[in-house]
Amino acid sequence: MEFTHTRLLVDNYKECFLFYRDVLGFNVTWGDENSNYADFKFNGATLGIFERKQMVEAIGGEYSVNIEKTDRTALIFKVKNVEETYQELKNKVEFITKPTEQKDWGIKVAHFRDPAGSLIEIYERI
């Protein structure tokens, strides 16, 4: 596995996009203020921001702004093959989603949580 970036899950996407681009001056490497997902590069690191509602829907959850404990961050790992990694890990972790092609995102993904409940995504480009 290769750790590729941290993704912030936000309810105010456009405001956050403008903050990271215009206030902090991070370089946009993917997305724009209306895409609901963007990657920023700074000092060799990548930060992603994603509309939380879409992430909740992708993992089969129910979106609400009133939920006390919600996903705000996701750890993202690029793998060579999502299906193979899923098979290697399925007896060690409880997957939230099975390997699924997200054609709009251009990736195949699967999701699980660490023991503290942090959301983890494994992905490959399709």
Results as ranks from 00 to 15, higher is better:
residue 84 E to C: 00
residue 22 D to V: 03
residue 50 F to A: 00
residue 14 K to H: 09
residue 96 I to A: 03
residue 1 M to P: 13
residue 27 N to C: 01
residue 126 I to R: 09
residue 28 V to N: 11
residue 47 L to S: 07
residue 40 F to L: 02
residue 12 N to R: 13
residue 16 C to T: 11
residue 108 K to T: 14
residue 63 Y to S: 05
residue 39 D to F: 11
residue 67 I to H: 13
residue 7 R to Y: 06
residue 21 R to L: 05
residue 96 I to S: 02
residue 19 F to C: 01
residue 77 F to Y: 15
residue 33 E to Y: 08
residue 21 R to V: 03
residue 37 Y to C: 01
residue 51 E to R: 06
residue 60 G to M: 02
residue 104 D to F: 11
residue 11 D to P: 06
residue 52 R to M: 04
residue 33 E to W: 09
residue 25 G to V: 04
residue 1 M to A: 13
residue 90 K to N: 10
residue 74 A to C: 10
residue 118 S to M: 14
residue 17 F to Q: 04
residue 99 P to V: 02
residue 107 I to P: 00
residue 99 P to R: 05
residue 108 K to F: 02
residue 106 G to N: 14
residue 118 S to D: 12
residue 74 A to R: 03
residue 35 S to A: 15
residue 62 E to C: 03
residue 66 N to G: 04
residue 58 A to Y: 10
residue 46 T to A: 01
residue 14 K to C: 08
residue 3 F to L: 14
residue 124 E to L: 05
residue 81 N to V: 06
residue 71 D to Q: 12
residue 79 V to H: 03
residue 15 E to R: 11
residue 75 L to E: 06
residue 110 A to R: 05
residue 33 E to D: 15
residue 50 F to N: 07
residue 6 T to M: 13
residue 15 E to Q: 13
residue 107 I to M: 05
residue 84 E to R: 07
residue 93 V to H: 02
residue 64 S to C: 04
residue 11 D to V: 04
residue 31 G to Q: 03
residue 71 D to H: 15
residue 75 L to G: 05
residue 21 R to M: 06
residue 11 D to L: 02
residue 63 Y to E: 07
residue 5 H to M: 06
residue 6 T to I: 15
residue 87 Q to W: 06
residue 118 S to N: 15
residue 95 F to P: 09
residue 89 L to V: 06
residue 51 E to S: 02
residue 34 N to I: 02
residue 91 N to V: 00
residue 45 A to F: 15
residue 45 A to K: 14
residue 125 R to F: 11
residue 57 E to I: 01
residue 103 K to D: 12
residue 65 V to T: 14
residue 106 G to D: 13
residue 54 Q to H: 13
residue 101 E to Y: 09
residue 43 N to M: 05
residue 27 N to T: 12
residue 82 V to P: 08
residue 126 I to K: 12
residue 90 K to P: 01
residue 1 M to N: 09
residue 119 L to G: 07
residue 116 A to P: 00
residue 31 G to R: 01
residue 42 F to P: 00
residue 93 V to E: 08
residue 32 D to V: 07
residue 25 G to W: 07
residue 113 R to M: 12
residue 120 I to P: 08
residue 31 G to A: 03
residue 3 F to H: 07
residue 82 V to T: 13
residue 57 E to V: 00
residue 110 A to M: 03
residue 26 F to Y: 15
residue 101 E to D: 15
residue 124 E to G: 05
residue 28 V to F: 10
residue 64 S to K: 03
residue 38 A to F: 08
residue 46 T to G: 00
residue 59 I to F: 06
residue 23 V to S: 13
residue 96 I to L: 14
residue 53 K to Q: 14
residue 77 F to H: 08
residue 3 F to I: 09
residue 96 I to M: 04
residue 118 S to E: 12
residue 24 L to V: 11
residue 58 A to W: 07
residue 105 W to N: 05
residue 45 A to Q: 15
residue 34 N to R: 07
residue 68 E to D: 09
